[in-house]
Every structure is written in C-alpha cells, then in structure tokens.
Amino acid sequence: MASKSNFTNMVVVLTSICLVCAAILGFVYSVTAEPIRQAEVAKINNAIASVVPEFNNNPSEEVFEVDGAQVYPAKMDTTVVGYAVKIKTSSFGGPMQMMVGFDNAGNIYNTSVISHADTPGLGAKMTDNNIKLRTELVGINPASVNLSVKKDGGDIDAITAATITSRSFLKGVDLAYQVFLKVQSQN
C-alpha cells in the first residue's frame, strides 16, 4: 500500500503529480484549441445563415461593432441584403447571446438563440424555432408593434410559464433593432 509519509517525499510526489498533470493539460489544450475555435465560428456562421436572406459573402470577415454589439453584413454580389446583429444580454438563468437578422427594410428576417442558461423545458424553449414568441416576430417591423409580452400590454405571446425569458428575449430583439437603426443611419 501507500508508502510512509515524510516531508521530502510528500513535496516531491505532490509537485511531480502537479507538473505531470499541468504538462498533459497544456498538451490537450494546444491540441483542442483549434477545434474549439472552429466550433465557435461554425456556431456563429450557422446563426447568421439562419437569420438573414440568402448571401454569398463571408459575414464573419466583414463584421463591425456598434454599441458593443457585433453586426454581420450579409451581401449578395456586393449588395447588402440584410444585417445579422449579435446581442449579448442577460436572461432568467444568466447570460444569453442571440442573433437577430434584419432585411434592408428593417423587418425582422429571423431570430436565433446562440447560447443561454435558462431552465431546460421552460425558458430553454426559446431555442425552438417553432415557438410562437419567435414565429410571430418573423417578417414584422419592430417599429410597427409593441415589442413586449401581452402580460405587459405588448403585442407578443410569451412562452408559457417563462415570462421572464420572453421579456429578456424581446428586450434583446429591441436592442438589436436599435443597433440596426444606427447602422442604417450611418449608411
């Protein structure tokens, strides 16, 4: 069984275990760093592709920042067809990132939730593409409706039993719209 402990062997063993572990971890980190980065990029690209009309440029390369939000222009043969706005906000369970896409007229093309920490089965339903909260937004202009849940006197149906999530989702959409307006006024 385990050997007798004295000061030297305790220090030597513990130090060498830490060193070996750190070395292994460093190695695994360097191997996985690239796949992790790619996975993240792929996620963003997927989100962009799902929220703007068809495009043939690489929006990730033309990204620019407005008010702390990332704006990805989607272009078809150098004509802008829409903008995807990445918003970082906070919801019921913690930080949440979402992508809101607008066409040139300022109508919402589609929305996508990139990451969130809300309750599975409740707030997490906002990742469902067929949830009423999100399908209702498609094609409308945020200026033409009251972007808040019906409970607060707005025009949008909240997710059942997840009012807080729905509220923060709509706030995120509104934030994205403000960013979009700024982008448009600059052009």
């Binding site: 008010d67 702390g68 970082k88 906000t89 019921f92 807080i164 509220r167």
Partner: peptide
Amino acid sequence: NNVGAANP
C-alpha cells in the same frame, strides 16, 4: 436585478 441589460 436587470433582466435584459445589454452587455452585462
């Protein structure tokens, strides 16, 4: 305390 805040 601030659901929906931008860039927390």
